[in-house]
Simulated scan of single mutants.
Amino acid sequence: MPETETATTTVPSLPALADQAERLIELGVHELAGVSAAELRAFAAGGEGGGDVLLAVHPDRVPASTLAPLLRREGRPGFVVVDMPDVDRFTPQTDTLPDGPLYLLTGVDRGDHMANWSPEEALPALSAQDRTPLLLTEGIHWLLQQPDVLERNHCFMTIGSRLRKDNGALDARTPAIWISNGTGRDGKERRGAPKVGWCWWGNRHTWLGFASAATRGPAAAPTP
């Protein structure tokens, strides 16, 4: 596998689940998902842990195109690149996604150690480690809770979401989240903003890791 050319930095811990629930309520995500504030708080209260557990909303309830503008960095809202109008067609390529509107992920990692790997190389490596790549919506949820996870030269791909074409083949684009430089069609006003875009399945980027989780399910992992 390729050598990593960027050093790993410390990723900020996640807030407690109760605080994550309040953050989603503040943003109105619960209403978008058709879940009451009381239901969201009750779900968070039933989970275990903190700092290692991420609260997520099922992508069928709130898609990436709706979540992305809720992101903030340096006062600028997040956005989806203009050449990805089909962003919500990038669906989960996993059979472990819970059925309910809310679920939890444990052991979320930015995957800095895989910087300069291609998605094609990273996916089997993650599988061999019994880790599941994050969905695009999960990556956005992570940044809604902890914006500082997104750093220059330390951004990430979310290859758990792929677009399957009408002929059954997977699209060669793979979604990622990084920081706009305000160039090209992004526009100068978006410099520094969180950016949802895509990279090719076979390409490598020194500044993109591969976000993944240890588990995904309706309840947090048992306390050791």
Rank of each mutant, 00 (worst) to 15 (best):
H113I: 10
P98I: 01
H113Q: 14
R110G: 08
R76T: 10
V80H: 04
D88L: 02
A56E: 05
T106C: 13
L104V: 06
V57D: 00
E120V: 12
M114P: 00
R72S: 12
P119H: 11
V53N: 06
A115M: 15
V108C: 12
V81G: 08
L104F: 07
G107E: 03
D60Q: 10
M84A: 14
G75D: 00
T66N: 10
A56D: 08
R61T: 05
R73I: 11
T91C: 07
A56R: 03
R89H: 09
P119S: 13
M84V: 12
M84G: 05
D60T: 09
V80P: 06
G111M: 01
L70H: 05
V57H: 00
V53L: 09
D95L: 13
D95P: 05
S65F: 07
L97H: 05
P119D: 12
R72I: 07
P77H: 09
P98E: 00
R72T: 10
L54F: 03
D112W: 13
L67M: 08
P98Q: 00
Y103T: 02
M114Q: 11
F79A: 02
L67V: 12
D112E: 13
V53G: 06
V62F: 02
A115H: 12
P59R: 02
E74K: 00
D99N: 05
G51W: 02
R89Y: 06
N116E: 08
P59Y: 03
V82Q: 13
L54H: 00
T96K: 12
V108L: 15
Q93V: 08
G100M: 04
T91E: 09
P63L: 09
L102N: 04
L105H: 07
T96Y: 05
V53R: 15
V62G: 02
N116Y: 10
G78K: 03
L70G: 09
P98C: 01
G75A: 03
D95S: 14
D52A: 15
R110W: 06
R73C: 05
H58K: 03
T94C: 09
V57G: 00
P85R: 01
V80D: 04
P59I: 01
T94I: 10
P77D: 10
L54C: 02
P101T: 02
V81S: 12
W117R: 06
D52C: 13
D109Y: 03
L102Y: 08
N116T: 02
G107K: 01
V57L: 02
T66L: 14
M114H: 09
Y103N: 02
D109R: 15
D60M: 09
V87D: 02
L102E: 05
D86R: 11
F90V: 08
D99A: 14
G51M: 01
D88R: 01
